[in-house]
Write a protein that binds this DNA or RNA. Structure first.
Length: 297
DNA sequence: AATGCGTGGGA
DNA sequence: TTCCCAAGCAT
């Protein structure tokens, strides 16, 4: 009988997650060392609310066609909207183009490397700005998306799900990041990956989680979610669906179309009209002098 | 601060 | 089938 085994030395959870990432990470094209900040920015905007599998082929096409911000800035919106394909939320395509214009005009065609300048770009918010600074420029930055918020909620706070985004999310994750800058950058992508592959919404795969033994949620007995019911957004019959249908018609039409050509897209004339108006307001559609509709030139 | 904004795959 | 949800942002 020997003395009770000493507890194994336990490295900080942040370091463990970085080590896990080294062997578990997906091989995604925007993570290769040769990609620049523009490629990162495009990937991040495309990935806003859109699954990786759908983004990957479109991102490759964009990088070939528009390798620099000035290339996209010089392209008419109609072509950009078509190239966006069916990624969804096509206003992102317009904003990304506007961001490219701003980068070209205000930053000499180079994606800015500081968070404040990045956040000033159209379509770039708290998350995307830090993701570009971190993954595009190798800066130590707190990068918090829905995956990270869920991981922190469980690992640190012992809650089944994350609440709404808060300013404290940034300090929460900063407290876990490794000291070394390069490892801190890896940590940022590693936590996102952990949330995407293991600590997922729905049923987390705790059996294969590298930090299951130090997870506050598991240590608390994996208590069920205890909070206000989350609203599930409907889609069928909403204006979002109608806008999508209308835009689908205009994407495939290569000449301006008369109003009658849009009637098949949606039966309810009042809703159809309202949605067409909103698309015009958003500058996703424009009307010619003779009353035809097309993607914006 | 709550809501609107696309789309399609998987449980 | 129905429901959930997938690297947010702007208003």
């Amino acid at each position: 009988m020997t003395a009770a085994a000493a507890p194994p030395p336990r490295e900080p959870a942040g370091e463990t997650i970085v080590d896990w990432y080294a062997s578990a990470a997906r091989d995604l094209p925007w993570r290769t060392p040769d990609v620049d900040a523009w490629a990162v920015l495009v990937s991040e905007v495309m990935l806003q609310q859109t699954p990786v599998a759908r983004v990957e082929p479109v991102w490759r096409t964009w990088m070939v066609r528009w390798p620099h911000p000035a290339d996209l800035a010089a392209t008419p919106p109609a072509e950009v909207i078509r190239a966006w394909g069916k990624l969804g939320y096509p206003r992102r395509a317009l904003r990304l183009r506007e961001a490219a214009v701003a980068i070209t005009e205000r930053h000499g065609g180079i994606v800015p490397d500081d968070v404040a300048a990045l956040e000033a770009l159209p379509g770039v918010g708290t998350y995307t700005a830090r993701a570009v600074a971190c993954f595009g420029y190798g800066q130590r930055q707190p990068v918090v998306d829905t995956n990270v918020r869920r991981v922190v909620a469980r690992l640190v706070h012992g809650c089944a799900e994350a609440g709404n985004a808060r300013a404290s999310d940034l300090t929460d994750i900063e407290a876990l990041a490794p000291e070394d800058e390069q490892r801190a950058v890896r940590f940022s992508v590693a936590v996102m990956e952990l949330g995407a592959l293991v600590c997922v919404a729905g049923t987390p795969r705790c059996a294969v989680c590298p930090v299951r033994d130090v997870c506050a949620w598991r240590l608390a007995g994996s208590p069920a979610y205890d909070g206000p019911p989350r609203r599930v957004q409907k889609f069928a019959g909403t204006d979002r669906q109608v806008r999508g249908r209308l835009l689908d018609v205009l994407r495939s039409a290569h000449e301006p179309v008369p109003p009658a050509a849009l009637e098949d897209a949606w039966e309810d004339a009042a809703q159809r009209s309202r949605c067409l108006d909103s698309l015009l307001t958003d500058a996703l559609v424009e009307q010619t002098e003779d009353g035809l509709f097309r993607l914006p030139t």
